[in-house]
Simulated scan of single mutants.
Amino acid sequence: MSVSTPQIQATRTESRSTARLLLTGPVWLVGVLAALAGAVVTEAFALATRAAGVPMEAAGPGATEAAEIPVGGFFGGVVFWSVAGIVLAVALARWAERPARTFTVTTVALTALSLAGPAVAPHTATSTQIVLAASHVVAAAVIVPLLARRLSHGQR
């Protein structure tokens, strides 16, 4: 016989409720939650690399010098680009025959394509380019599985 406290039982109930939401909640809501989780994890990754001494200065195409990436910049970037992923997930949930597979293949391809940006960033230290590319992978590693799992459970 197992004995558990009310606090442990409440935690288990909350955990089941969260899991149920992530499996059966509206695709857009799961997408928003996944985007926020991905943004937090990616910003934490960026803060850790910043603390380790990686310069957080990058330049975009056509820039003559690198500019500092502000604290919160990774969070904002992930949230901004996640909107496109959420729209894609909602559309696939509605119209695709195999939405989870289509979403996963598409987003993995887009993530791979996004690695070109940091690779060619002018006036940017190689260490920063590596962190920028890794941050794309970190964000995708959090967001894509959560949305794909939701899409695999039907109920568009």
Rank of each mutant, 00 (worst) to 15 (best):
V142C: 07
W81F: 15
P70G: 05
T42I: 09
E68S: 09
L146Y: 11
F103D: 00
E14R: 13
R149S: 15
E68R: 14
F103H: 07
Q155K: 14
V138L: 05
P26C: 01
T128V: 03
T128F: 05
L33V: 14
T128H: 03
Q129I: 00
V30W: 00
L147C: 03
G72L: 10
A37L: 13
R16W: 09
R50H: 09
S2N: 13
A10M: 00
V90F: 08
T102N: 00
V142A: 04
P55N: 07
L21S: 02
V41D: 09
S4G: 04
I143C: 06
V131C: 05
G85C: 04
I8F: 00
L147D: 02
L88A: 14
A139L: 02
F74H: 12
V87C: 07
A139I: 03
A48I: 10
L29W: 11
S17R: 12
E43W: 12
L146S: 12
F80Q: 12
G72D: 10
A125T: 02
A93D: 05
A91N: 07
V78C: 08
V27E: 02
A134S: 11
V138R: 07
A89W: 04
V32A: 10
R98T: 14
I86S: 08
A116C: 09
A52V: 05
A134G: 02
A89C: 10
I69G: 10
S15H: 06
A109N: 06
L113K: 06
G53E: 04
P55L: 07
T5S: 14
S2K: 12
P70M: 01
S82L: 05
V105K: 04
A63D: 15
